[in-house]
């Protein structure tokens, strides 16, 4: 198991290298540098700045330096926020984003799995059609539509929830709903499909032939297989949540990593944006690894 985890980590290295190279090339190919700001800097100051950030070196040297630093988990200084390193900014923004993302994912799983399984057990009955129509609505309403509509309803017309910022748990309600609803709907659809399939499997028929209660058949015998496609979906789900957090954090004014990314991109803050992209890339690789290990725990037939 440990050697499998290590092998998977090593296998991720080419992925990360390509990611890094792509990010580097794009950054350097981009028109306009970070110091092309509003007013022209004196040539000497400009040269000093470029020397400080090693922008005067040949490209391959900059590239080598960057890879070296990243390998040591050092994403360099931010161009925009002088005197602050990208590491600091990530350390500052990530916990906020993580809290939001984890809560959204938890919401999606806790509500989506039972909803989908119950729909499957009432297949082609009104409850099933109802649940699946709701799920389809959830998938079809983008988070950046849901968020302002919720603000309109719960914050503008009624003063039930705060429209933005952080502080108490109430601040998280709308962002989590906005970020988690589509995910929940998707999970429900997956859970329905897999449950229908497993309920037709031979071993569920065996369980029923043993006279086990309906509850035990569903929650003990059918559940693991019903969860399998949802576990596979966790990787893309995490990526989706990261993407969604960019827009949700912007809408609700949450000082997380997503907002830093948007600000950094608009300000041409090379190192910050690259740092965030790489950080997310590493995160997704690690997350997928965790998902694979979870898979093995769920299905004893998988061997490493």
């Amino acid at each position: 198991m440990l050697s499998y985890a290590l092998r998977r980590l090593l296998g991720a290295i080419p992925t990360l290298l390509i990611l890094l190279t792509l990010a580097f090339v794009m950054m350097r190919a981009a028109p306009g540098g970070p110091f092309d700001a509003d007013r022209e800097l004196p040539p000497q100051v400009r040269a000093n700045l470029e020397a400080k950030y090693h922008l005067d070196e040949p490209l391959y040297q900059q590239y080598g330096r960057y890879i070296w630093d990243v390998a040591h988990f050092d994403f360099g200084p931010s161009f925009q926020y002088r005197d602050t390193s990208v590491n600091d900014l990530i350390a500052q923004g990530f916990p906020v984003s993580l809290k939001l993302g984890a809560a959204s994912l938890a919401f999606a799983l806790i509500f989506g799995i039972p909803l989908g399984m119950l729909a499957a057990l009432r297949q082609n009955k009104p409850a099933d059609y109802g649940a699946m129509t709701v799920a389809m609505l959830g998938i079809s309403i983008p988070n950046f539509v849901l968020a302002p509509l919720m603000i309109l309803l719960f914050a503008v017309y009624n003063d039930w929830l705060p429209a933005g910022g952080l502080g108490s748990w109430q601040n998280y309600v709308m962002p989590v709903l906005a970020l988690g609803t589509a995910m929940m709907a998707y999970v429900a659809r997956l859970a329905r499909g897999s449950t229908i399939e497993v309920m037709r499997s031979n071993y569920v028929r065996t369980a029923r032939a043993k006279g086990l209660s309906a509850a035990r058949v569903v929650w003990v015998h059918a559940l693991p297989a019903a969860l399998t496609p949802i576990v596979s979906f966790l990787g893309p789900a995490a990526a989706g949540i990261i993407t969604g957090s960019v827009v949700i954090e912007t809408i609700f004014g949450i000082p997380g990593l997503g907002q830093f990314f948007v600000q950094g991109a608009l300000n041409r803050d090379y190192t910050l944006v690259m740092g965030v992209v790489l950080f997310y890339g590493i995160l997704i690789v690690l997350f997928n690894l965790a998902v694979d290990l979870l898979y093995g725990w769920l299905d004893p037939r998988v061997s490493y």
Partner: peptide, 23 residues
């Protein structure tokens, strides 16, 4: 449910798929 497994038990064709692989 009281009858199945207690009074009438059943075995099936394909033992590869009739046991739950997860348990």
């Amino acid at each position: 449910e009281r009858i199945r497994g207690a009074r009438i038990a059943m075995i099936f064709q394909d033992p590869m798929t009739t046991l739950n692989p997860h348990l």
